[in-house]
Simulated assay, not measured.
Amino acid sequence: MAELSPYLSFADNCEEVFNFYKSVFGGEFLTLMRFGEHQTECPYPADESHKIMHVALPIGKHTILMGSDMPGNMEPPMNGTNFSITITPESKEEAQRIFDGLSAGGTVTMPLSKTFWAESFGMFIDKFGVSWMVNF
């Protein structure tokens, strides 16, 4: 079976976003590359060499959350407007920790609570505009 790894694109704050996600999920980045560190076929303005070309953060046994900044000469990214990332924790306590951590500074659209299909389910848009669902 193929594995699915969400890939998020940002205008210029990918490093801030992924440091926030790392503070919630823990772990270490598998990869963190900047445009200025590598020769690339992707053209970018010289003053954007500090931007993130690729970052990868494991957030589960088989899931890697990935992302990058989009160079200013490319189309702007759509942050969280047409999808939600759903995460399925291994315990109710972990669901609460992840929900509280990721929703901090964002907008809760459905508080984490019991539903007819889940012991705990909640939805929010994080402070970076990415839509999440927590389902335990």
Results as ranks from 00 to 15, higher is better:
F35A: 03
F29D: 07
G60W: 05
N13G: 03
A11T: 00
S103T: 06
K51I: 06
P6T: 01
I52F: 06
S131C: 02
P58N: 13
T81S: 15
A2Q: 01
T107D: 05
G129S: 02
M133G: 04
I98L: 09
M74Q: 14
A11P: 03
T81M: 15
P76E: 15
I125F: 09
F10A: 00
M110N: 00
F99K: 13
I64M: 14
F18E: 02
K114Y: 10
G72K: 15
H54F: 02
G129P: 07
L32A: 12
G27P: 01
M53I: 02
E75S: 15
H54D: 05
N19M: 12
N79I: 11
F136K: 15
I59M: 06
A56G: 06
E93F: 03
M33F: 11
S9R: 10
E3K: 13
M74H: 14
S131M: 07
P45I: 09
F25S: 07
S23T: 02
Y44D: 00
V17P: 06
A46G: 06
I64V: 15
K51R: 02
D100T: 05
C14L: 04
T81R: 15
A56L: 11
N82P: 09
D126A: 08
F136C: 15
A11Y: 00
A95M: 11
S23A: 11
S113E: 02
D12M: 04
M74W: 13
E15R: 14
V17R: 09
C14R: 12
E90G: 09
F10K: 04
Y44F: 09
V130E: 02
E90R: 13
G105M: 02
Y44R: 00
G122Q: 07
